[in-house]
């Protein structure tokens, strides 16, 4: 079996589990909608235009809801010992990691779409004239987020503290993604030209690449015994 076929098998398995249980996507989606409702009460009506702060809200919702779902990547498989079985197969560890990243990314992509719909409906946010640039920004941001969150999720799901430890490990390292992602989204929502954000998108892509590379290299040492 080729390397990509192995990755695909992992992705297919994860998506099948998700499709049958619908555990994580329901939790993440419910979180995104509910946080939208709470935000509508948190923003004082009339004083601030939601359009001006929507970029920050979108990214914060992405991170908080994403951490709920991605943090549980290894939970279900750890509970019934299926992950040990997966490790016994002759699949390279980095293929397991990349498969997990792809399935988590698809999950977060659905989440992002939902967030955009929710904020558009609740706050009448206008997403500007450059949907491709906006999707690239959110896409590379989500990829970097998933790359780091999958690696650290593998660590925290094995600790006594569980997923509660994940934000402590993850948030300091997400700083570049938040800074460049929010500023690019802000400019796009304010109707600025794409040329102003292309640098940000490149940094987000580099961040995602570094996250994936370090995750693929280090994942083996996280999951293996001895």
């Amino acid at each position: 079996m080729s390397y990509f076929a192995m990755i695909w098998e992992i992705v297919r398995k994860d998506l099948l589990i998700e499709f049958r249980t619908r555990q994580r996507i329901v939790v993440m989606g419910a979180f995104a909608v509910l946080i939208g409702i709470l935000f509508s009460f948190a923003i004082p009506p009339g004083t601030i235009r939601p359009q001006d702060i929507a970029a920050g809200l979108v990214w914060m919702t992405l991170v908080f809801a994403g951490i709920l779902g991605v943090g549980r990547t290894f939970q279900l498989e750890a509970e019934d010992g299926a992950f040990q079985g997966l490790l016994l197969t002759p699949v390279p560890r980095d293929a397991v990691y990349l498969g997990k990243v792809v399935s988590n990314f698809l999950l977060v992509a659905v989440l992002v779409a939902l967030i955009l719909v929710v904020f558009g409906a609740f706050f009448q946010v206008d997403y500007g004239d450059h949907p491709i640039a906006l999707l690239l920004t959110l896409g590379f941001g989500a990829l970097g987020f998933v790359g780091l969150a999958t690696l650290f999720g593998a660590i925290t799901s094995g600790t006594r503290l569980g997923e509660t430890l994940l934000p402590v490990l993850l948030f300091p390292l997400l700083t570049p993604m938040i800074i460049f992602g929010v500023s690019a989204t802000n400019r796009l929502l304010a109707g600025r030209p794409v040329a102003e954000v292309s640098g940000n998108i490149r940094v987000l892509a580099a961040f995602a690449l570094i996250a994936l590379a370090s995750g693929a290299l280090l994942f083996k040492t996280v999951v293996d015994d001895a």
Binding site: L148, L151, F152, I155, T156, G158, T159, R160, L161, L165, V168, L169, P172, L173, P176, I210, S214, L218, T221, V222, A226
Partner: peptide
């Protein structure tokens, strides 16, 4: 925190090393 919350000292050492390297890269 990773070091102290790991199920075995051996895992704690390796996981903490991963946190140290990922931190340094970032």
């Amino acid at each position: 925190m990773v070091r102290n919350a790991a199920p075995t000292p051996e895992k704690g050492r390796r996981w903490a090393a991963v946190v140290g390297i990922a931190g340094a890269v970032n």
